[in-house]
Design a protein around this nucleic acid. Structure first.
Lengths: 185, 185
DNA sequence: CGTCTAATGCAACTGCAAGTTGCATTGAGG
DNA sequence: CCTCAATGCAACTTGCAGTTGCATTAGACG
């Protein structure tokens, strides 16, 4: 809730995009109110519209900026340990207001739809590193497609959270980890 | 696109709800335009609002009506055959405009959120029948929770379709079937 | 067949939020 | 210190949800 000023340049963009994320977080939807963003960013509505002609552009830019935040890949020393960390993080994400809103972005905009596959592939490949490390440690054999294994591990968590609408227990998480580990034999 | 008339009673509801589904199907979103529904249903906007005070009520009613359509459970004679049918049906659903719109209903309305778990449990239990039959035929041992196995089988399909945004190949479907079959040993 | 009433049609309304516009201010670089 | 582009500001237009008062009409009932 910054005060209106006449600041310019990149700082303004940053404030605006951060405000967008905040509003998404607090409203739980991508159908945010631009006036609210302006208020939070301490910027006039007109300024927002000058930079992002349509609200969707604004939301898209904010999501893309958010997507660039690097998710840390755990390195606990054991495969199971790392996988557990991942799975717990995923649960936290799909349980959060922001996470749920972003995941509901399905078919939100054509641009986003085009970027989606690459985004997830990046995520999966990054997470697959824990499998690579396990292989190096001699914990297991090298699988054909580590990224796919990660995808198959997190899919049930996403599905249960976003569709079935049930709280996700530790046991459920453990099942997903076990299945991945089992697939490596 | 029926003509405006003064018909009354249950027929009107049916027309309206059918129109809602059509509009969702053609627009690919649950944020339908009530005027469009009125037009399609051959009914005045006022009539709709008299029966469904808020648009969300209208959409919810239409979804619930739609959800009551019984999905046929295949019975081809073999476990793999039945699972394959299921998995192909799921792919078709998540690929359709209507299916995608309905699946994006995540956190759309509190009422819907409450009904969601029961809905899916029903679906899973119904589909689990193919496993029961396989057990009866002696194809495999009885699993602990057949419904869960079905859930785990379809989850990656939903996840890939709605989130990752990649077309789903026959091979991917086959992997899911294989995993379920493997779990039964 | 006539009558009465509740459901429907209709048109004009309010309210809210997206997006626009013309003009006044102001910050930063020369 | 001057200039000009970026910002602020207020008053618009537009689209759609939802409302309202009144005219019409289906259909039940005698």
């Amino acid at each position: 809730m910054n005060e209106p000023s006449h600041r310019r340049g990149k700082v303004v963009d940053d404030n605006i995009l951060r405000a967008v994320i905040s509003v998404i977080e607090e409203s739980g939807t991508l159908l945010i109110k631009v006036d609210r963003v302006a208020e939070l960013a301490g910027v006039n509505k007109t300024t927002i519209y000058r930079r992002f002609p349509k609200r969707d552009d604004l939301v898209l830019a904010a999501i893309l900026a958010q997507a660039e935040t690097v998710v840390p890949i755990p390195d606990v020393g054991s495969l199971r340990g790392d996988l557990w960390e991942i799975v717990v993080m995923v649960r936290a994400t799909v349980a959060s207001n922001l996470g749920r809103a972003l995941l509901s972005a399905s078919a939100a905009s054509p641009e986003l739809d085009e970027l989606r596959p690459a985004y997830w592939q990046t995520r999966f490949d990054a997470a697959a590193k824990v499998i690579d490390r396990a292989v190096e440690r001699g914990e297991c054999a090298a699988p054909q497609d580590p990224g796919l294994l990660i995808e198959l591990m997190v899919a049930p968590i996403h599905f249960r959270a976003t569709q079935v609408g049930v709280d996700i227990s530790d046991e459920f998480l453990a099942v997903q980890v076990d299945r991945l580990v089992a697939a490596l034999r």
